[in-house]
Design a protein around this nucleic acid. Structure first.
Lengths: 213, 213
DNA sequence: ACCTCCGCTGACCGTATCGGTCAATTATTA
DNA sequence: TAATAATTGACCGATACGGTCAGCGGAGGT
């Protein structure tokens, strides 16, 4: 691809990227018109072909952008070095919110790309996915003090429950069409407070876990 | 549409319907080729145009099929007259499993159709949706005995939590590509048991709620 | 044997759209 | 103003689309 793309003003780059995410996430690879991406980004089709040699290159660039962005934000929000489970869930959700705010259609694009069947791209997609595999969520319960939780609580199920509920929440947001980052943050802290109220051992010093609020 | 469609063998009807769901759920209305639907259903394009006058009629038929199927199964599984909250969640999930089993792509089709922008169909979609509105989930917590739950539990949040987790679960299943009804049933009863263990008041007669197992 | 109905198809049509190119036009810089 | 870079509209060949239609082949009636 043409390196001059990166010297474009940030907003223009994002406009192009987001247009790509939108169109590719709404159609199959083959049925996604480059012209639609261009016009949605506010540039001509010719210019888009000036930055990216062809459709495939654009598509693969977007795919790699997803990985890059995810890793970058997870590092930025300190997802890798959280000790407290609730803090971990919280910063994980913050990353999702942050990404959805900046690239609203990235999430859907990722799964569509992952299951894309078109032989023109599916090979490269799968290959590049193998490289990233180890970095996946796979949040370990290791290193978490079990003593803080209510007696007899099944920790594995608790984690699964929290994971599913947060997935359900972003799914609800995604499919509702509109993304309100503030509301999401508010909703999710409420959910986390609820989790604390039901999962943590009763009779603890209030606010004694993590940073509290 | 041609009424002869309904005198087709059930399996052929379903093949056509599922092919429609698949193709329309993967592309925009305009970019969804009728020919692809036909070939996936194992019939010729001409025959498909024999049953449905045009693309729009096929699309709208599929849309109404969603409502019909949902209502039918919710009635069949007694979703409307469950007193116990966990039983309600359970039968609700059973309906989803049942539908996903028979029409794997219906769920995605519904939301895609709902947000379809194409002026050729979006008017009709919205109009017919208004008619169904009242029937939506909107599961009421009224009629549920609050005494059975743990002290100080926020019932509204509990319900929201359960709802989100189950949404998250079906989302996980849908996006994983493969649908294993047995596994889903097993997973979900496990989740419900977990809910009971954390939400119900402690020291109750074991198995005293609902039908237990 | 012939006719007729009917489920079903392949070939076809006019049009629209697609990926990609390129010469030309405009903005930028020196 | 000259040279260079950014940006575009028009264009091309190929293909895919929605929809039509004449006709095939088999089942039954006579």
């Amino acid at each position: 691809m043409n390196e001059k793309f990166f010297s474009l003003p940030e907003e223009k780059q994002q406009a192009i990227i987001n247009a790509g995410f939108r169109v590719f996430s709404q159609n199959t690879y083959k049925k996604s018109p480059v012209s639609e991406i261009a016009s949605e980004a506010g540039i001509s089709k010719s210019l888009l072909f000036y930055y990216f040699r062809n459709k495939k290159e654009l598509y693969l660039f977007l795919w790699e952008k997803c990985a890059q962005v995810t890793i970058e934000y997870m590092r930025e929000y300190g997802c890798y070095d959280k000790k407290d489970l609730f803090e971990m869930m919280y910063s994980g959700m913050q990353v999702k919110i942050r990404i959805m705010k900046q690239y609203p259609d990235m999430g859907v694009f990722v799964i569509k790309a992952f299951y894309e069947k078109d032989p023109e791209v599916c090979g490269e997609i799968q290959k590049s996915y193998q490289k990233l595999k180890g970095l996946s969520a796979s949040a370990t319960l290791a290193g978490i003090d079990p003593g803080q939780f209510a007696e007899g609580l099944d920790l594995r199920m608790m984690y699964r429950e929290m994971y599913l509920a947060s997935e359900g929440y972003v799914w609800e947001m995604v499919s509702s069409g509109k993304i309100d980052a503030d509301k999401m943050e508010k909703d999710f802290t409420e959910i986390i407070e609820f989790w604390k109220s039901i999962f943590l051992r009763k009779g603890q010093v209030p606010g004694g876990t993590a940073k509290g609020e």
